[in-house]
Amino acid sequence: MTPYFNAVATTLYSIFEGMAVTTSYLFRRPSTIQYPNKLEKPLEEQLSDRYRGILQVDTSVCIGCRICEKTCPIDCIAINLEKNKETKERFLTRFDIDISKCMFCGLCSENCSTCAIYHTKFFNGATQNVDELVVRFVDSPIVLYKHRKDSDPKTREKDLSGVIVKQKMVKQRMKKQKTAKQEMPVNKISKHKIKEEIL
């Protein structure tokens, strides 16, 4: 008979204890933040400086060693280098990062001797088209950086909030939309023509 009543007592007491815990939470601060509308402080301040967000390339300090391209396990970085045969200057003509492929492992930025490629805190770069996620960091050929004794590029100020790469992505998207709009009527006409030809 004792186990029978013990079971009743322990059940009721354990429920009582559980209720006391849940009631105490009615007086305790919620731990969630209300992203993105009601943030107490901007999200960039809440993330740590080591946060591995979307990659940013500072092409002005790139020495063109291609280590990042080689270490990347999924080949999402594409670099082209060209050499002027007369002046023997080397140029960076292409530095593309496919963010849709990137898995934010940090192997590329870790090996960069000048910190030209680094992770920003920018992470919400969703687009409607996957192609728009290929960020092209070189618009016109850039002369490669050479190490100088008086300055260390590693100590320079970095754009950790990712404003530059964000603007770059927006610019690319706008450009693409413009070209798409121009192409639109051409496509329509050609479709009509094809139909007529079939008829």
Binding site: L47, S48, R50, Y51, R52, M103, C105, G106, E110, H119
Partner: peptide, 24 residues
């Protein structure tokens, strides 16, 4: 996760260890 983010920069897929040591 916040501590992990401060240590290695990611909250889920850490990639913290390296051959011969750790990354940070």
């Amino acid at each position: 996760n916040d501590i992990m983010e401060a240590i290695c920069g990611a909250r889920l897929t850490y990639s913290y260890m390296r051959v011969g040591g750790v990354s940070r």
